[in-house]
Write a protein that binds this DNA or RNA. Sequence first.
DNA 1: TGCTAATTAGCAATTCATGCAAATTAGCAA
DNA 2: TTGCTAATTTGCATGAATTGCTAATTAGCA
Lengths: 136, 136
Amino acid sequence: MKSPTELTEAFRATGLKVTPQRQLLFRLMHGNTMHPTAEALYSEASAQMPGISLRTVYQTLTDLASMGELRLIDVGAGAVRFDPNVDEHHHVICQGCGNVRDVYVAGSQALHIEGLDGFSVDSTSILFHGSCASCA
Amino acid sequence: MKSPTELTEAFRATGLKVTPQRQLLFRLMHGNTMHPTAEALYSEASAQMPGISLRTVYQTLTDLASMGELRLIDVGAGAVRFDPNVDEHHHVICQGCGNVRDVYVAGSQALHIEGLDGFSVDSTSILFHGSCASCA
DNA sequence: TGCTAATTAGCAATTCATGCAAATTAGCAA
DNA sequence: TTGCTAATTTGCATGAATTGCTAATTAGCA
C-alpha cells in the first residue's frame, strides 16, 4: 500500500476526497502487519476518532482494495481481513491464537497442476494452517 | 468419504443413529464432485425428501466433517462448501461461473516457506483463481 | 413392545457485510 | 473568503450464512 501522503495525492487525482476519516485509516493501515478485520480497525480508529462509523471503515477499506492498495484475505474465520502488503506472498494462520502472518513461498509459481483442461489461472492463494511458537 | 453403507456402520458403531435424513445425505454426498454449499444440498435433498430441514443438513454435514469424512472448503464466496474428497488435494475456482474443481498439485509438499520462526504447519490449502474453459 | 437417548424441525439469534437516504463536508471556482 | 456541488459520512435497515435452543419425534436396543 502506498504511504498516506501518496494515497492523498492518488485520491485527489481520481476526484476522490481526502477526509479526516480516510487519512486516519490510511495511517492505521500503512505498514500494518496485523491483518486486521474491519471491526478490529474500527476499534483502533474509534480510539483516535470517536464517532467514526463502522460503515465508513468498510467503505474506505473496500475502496482501497478496489484501487489495488489492499488485499482482502479470507482465512475462513468469519470476517475478512485486510492486508496492505500487495506483494506476491501468502499466509500462515495459527489455529491457537488466530494470528495471521505473511510468508513468502519459494517456488509457488512453479506449482504443477494436474487435472485442469482449459482452465487458466490468474492468481494463487496459499494458506498454511498450524501453530505459532507461543501456541505450540 | 466412505460409502453410505460404511458410514451407516461407522455411525452405529459410535452410538449415532442412522436416520432416513442422514442416509439421504450420505447418498447425495458420496462421490459428489460439485462442492455443494449447504443450501445447494438442501435443495437436492428437499426434492427427494420434502420437509427435511436446512438445519439437519448443516448438522449432518458438520458431523461428517468432524468425523473426517468431509472437508470444508471456503473459497471466499459467502457460503462454505463441502467436499467428500479427503485426499491431499487443492481447488481451482472459476471467477466466471463460480464452479470449484479438485486439483492435484505436484510438489505442494515441497514448498519452501520463508519467514516463520517456530511456526509448525499442519496443513496447507491452495486455491487457484481463474477462468474455466467455457467462461474464458 | 417399550424405553431412552439421539435426532429433527423450526424458529430465534448472531455475525459479517451491504443498501439506502438524509445530513455533512472537501475541494474547486469566483 | 465565500459559496456551490458532488462526494462522503452516518446510522439504521436489510440480507446472507450459520448456529443456538427446545419441544416433538424416532432409531436402536432390551
